[in-house]
Design a protein around this nucleic acid. Structure first.
Length: 330
DNA sequence: CGGGGACTATGCTATTACAG
DNA sequence: CTGTAATAGCATAGTCCCCG
């Protein structure tokens, strides 16, 4: 990962009262923060999930505390009443695990000037999702280029671009109506009850067709579905603009919830769903997949014909609420 | 020695294509 | 609307060679 390392961080890391391993991990943690800093809001705070920091280094908090001590970063804090002295106000790091709101940080020094350094983020831990992707790429004759983006933790590799033509004869297993359904699952888990949104899925209806029907779209069946899909994407990913404002009246509670997620940074909406998606597909399904050849494509996976039925059963058994479907690439 | 011409390498931006 | 990767186009810089 290419980052700008300001002098203040450089000297602070050099002066750390820990061994070289910790110092090296401190650079990684700095790089992790740096990579998230583009998400900063008007006051400079940007969210960084603890799960991500922990994946970079298990004892990340030790390093963060040191950075705070040195006046290099700051936690986002909120005021609380001191229960031992109610006349006293105390400030604590603010986050809410229940609501999925992670801690925020800000840099107290200018991170735009400094040395350009390439930080090796790779830990010694190898993950099966990586190994199986690597082996499958080699077997299929592709260069091994695998990365995971920060926005939605999606996996990118060299065979994604033309997979539909390059893997003819192979099968894909993908999830139908992936993002709307994942949002449904998410709402259900969180106890957010938007009547219309929940009704569509509780009754096993086709989400996009239902939206098109309720909002009186015109056109062919396919074009109405496509318009509804486009509307959904704006609703999830956008900064407030949607092609049809009626969606806010159709799903009032869901809209309000999305708005609350986007408070601070509107990109959190899309990021959240992509993360849910990749957590299922990469960190679970691909990591434990019962075959030797598999290549992920965001919300689907490419497998061989001899494995497809076994993998399909495996996916269905693991996530009964997701509608998995196999398809031959031709 | 310097002036071209032809070629190659690099860097940047915009566009396209894919995913949802 | 979001993301990343690949590609196209263009400008610039460097290299090589021939020639006067």
């Amino acid at each position: 990962m290419l980052v700008t390392l300001p002098n203040q961080f450089k000297t602070a890391i050099n002066k750390m009262p820990f061994n070289v391993t910790v110092k090296k991990n401190a650079i990684k943690i700095y790089a992790a923060l740096y990579s998230k800093s583009h998400l900063k809001n008007s006051t400079g705070f940007f969210p960084v999930p603890s799960a991500y920091l922990a994946a970079v280094n298990k004892r990340y908090y030790k390093i963060l505390d040191y950075f705070v001590e040195r006046g290099l970063i700051d936690y986002y804090k909120k005021a609380y009443t001191d229960d031992k002295d109610i006349f006293n106000t105390i400030y604590r790091k603010s986050y809410n695990k229940e609501l999925g709101i992670c801690a925020k940080y800000r840099f107290l020094v200018n991170v735009e000037v400094g040395d350009e350094v390439n930080v090796d983020m790779v830990s010694n831990r190898t993950n099966r999702w990586w190994n199986i992707t690597e082996n499958s790429l080699i077997e299929a004759g592709f260069d091994v280029k695998i990365s995971r983006d920060d926005f939605g933790r999606r996996v990118w590799h060299s065979a994604i671009r033309n997979y539909k033509t390059d893997f003819q004869g192979y099968y894909t297993i993908d999830s139908q109506c992936s993002q709307p359904r994942l949002l449904y699952k998410y709402f259900k888990d969180k106890g957010i009850n938007d009547p219309e949104y929940m009704r569509i899925f509780n009754n096993e209806l086709d989400f996009y067709s239902e939206v098109a029907k309720k909002l009186d779209f015109t056109g062919t069946k396919e074009s109405k579905r496509a318009d509804a899909k486009d509307l959904f994407m704006h609703w999830i990913n956008g900064n407030g603009y949607v092609p049809d404002f009626e969606i806010h009246n159709l799903f009032p509670i869901a809209s309000k919830y999305l708005k609350s997620i986007k408070k601070g940074n509107y990109k959190s909406g899309g990021s959240l769903l992509q993360r849910i998606e990749s957590k299922i597909w990469i960190d679970d399904l691909l990591t434990n997949i019962p075959c030797d050849f598999a290549l992920p494509v965001h919300d689907s996976v490419i497998v061989k014909e001899k494995d497809v039925d076994r993998v399909l059963e495996y996916c269905k058994a693991k996530y009964p609420e997701i509608r998995f479907k196999k398809a031959l690439l031709k």
